[in-house]
Design a protein around this nucleic acid. Structure first.
Lengths: 147, 147
DNA sequence: AGGTGGTGGTTCGAATTCGAACCATGGGAG
DNA sequence: CTCCCATGGTTCGAATTCGAACCACCACCT
């Protein structure tokens, strides 16, 4: 359990720092940054809402909120999905891409400074492996009352 | 950066599960549970507000809110600090302690199932070491504009 | 075709969080 | 002893989050 406590403390602190840096440097929330990043990596720079929600691990309603927010900032647009009339695609705008490119270096710097650079290569590798195991365990493992 | 992404996803998922379990089993927020846990481990089962805030890594205002909340639930009381008239001690009540003891097993079970038990002994050890390094780096390292 | 369950998104209300501004007390410096 | 700044908590308003309820459309089944 000492591991768990350490994990909680460290992750809270890190989240705080990241949030702080992004807000100061780019006026973005970490959640918003994650959305932009996901979109930029997607084919055509657009993704279905649900897919995106799964990716950033947020509730559907939370995502709706943030996309609206990003839309009024001009970083994202909504398009109706051609293959499914009810679907919505969130698409990164040029401005959104520019914003991301402008913001990424600072963000990456913080992450490196507070996480990556602290680790021995081996440690980094185990961390990644562990995180993947966790994700695998939680993605399919009984989402309590379903499946 | 792939490590960072994996980390984000895994931690979000885990947080979600933990939150869900605590809410369902005990009607507590993870934040609230952390507060109770910290208090139970403190000498005299009471702590100064600021100290507690540092421990659980929350803003002072956030802590004020949650302590008020826990107070109306009868799990915690506020006492004025004897040595410092303006200070406030948050103290775990008997009921609070009982609630914690009732809740802990389920919580621990989830954490074990989704994190601890997935790890080889060595991995667990590395994780802990890494988390400690991160905490150390962030606790004293330039909290941007201060110290 | 017509119905039926299910999926995709949004809306709504409630809860939580933060930071900034604010009072009150402590602890020196002069 | 008095003044002044730093510290400890609370209050306030704004932003974000979630889950539940809701509507609209798809896909399959008869």
């Amino acid at each position: 359990m000492v591991a768990w406590t350490a994990y909680l403390t460290a992750s809270h602190l890190l989240e705080r720092r990241v949030e702080e840096q992004l807000k100061a440097d780019a006026g973005l929330t970490h959640a918003q940054y994650e959305i932009l990043a996901r979109l930029s990596a997607a084919p055509g720079r657009r993704l279905r809402m649900t897919e995106l929600a799964r990716g950033v691990v947020a509730s559907k309603s939370g995502l709706t909120y943030q996309i609206s927010r990003l839309e009024t900032m001009g970083l994202v647009t909504r398009e109706t999905c051609p293959s499914d009339e009810r679907g919505v695609l969130a698409a990164l705008t040029g401005e959104g891409m520019a914003c991301l490119e402008r913001t990424a270096p600072g963000h990456v710097a913080v992450v490196r400074a507070l996480l990556i650079d602290l680790l021995e290569p081996g440690e980094l590798e185990t961390m990644t492996r562990v995180m993947r195991k966790m994700e695998a365990a939680m993605r399919d493992d009984a989402p309590p009352p379903s499946r």
